[in-house]
Amino acid sequence: MTKKNITFAGIIFEGGTADEYKTGGWRKLRPILDKDKCTNCLICWVMCPDSAVIVEDGKMVGFNLEHCKGCGICAMECPDKVKAITMEEEEK
């Protein structure tokens, strides 16, 4: 929203606008997927609070790093027997 275009009560007259707000820069830890271990149970996709787990054709394929904030929930929730996600320090 630019200053010249202030809407009534700040309402944005379209939906899904969070997609345009890039939060990936907040990340300190980066999720790394080991595709060989992954069973595509999609628990990580369900649990990610930022909808940053990318699923294609029912398969977990990676992370949307423009929105992933690095919270580590996916790594925590990935079943103990699998543990296909590890969190690594972002490079400075």
């Binding site: 200053k3 700040g10 309402i11 944005i12 939906g15 606008t17 707000y21």
Partner: peptide
């Protein structure tokens, strides 16, 4: 049909204008 976003995050470039409207 006409989706809207209510209560979105508003930063220093707009918050004060919206308060001024109010």
């Amino acid at each position: 049909e006409n989706p809207i976003t209510v209560g979105a995050m508003t930063l220093p470039d707009a918050y004060m204008d919206i308060k001024h409207q109010q």
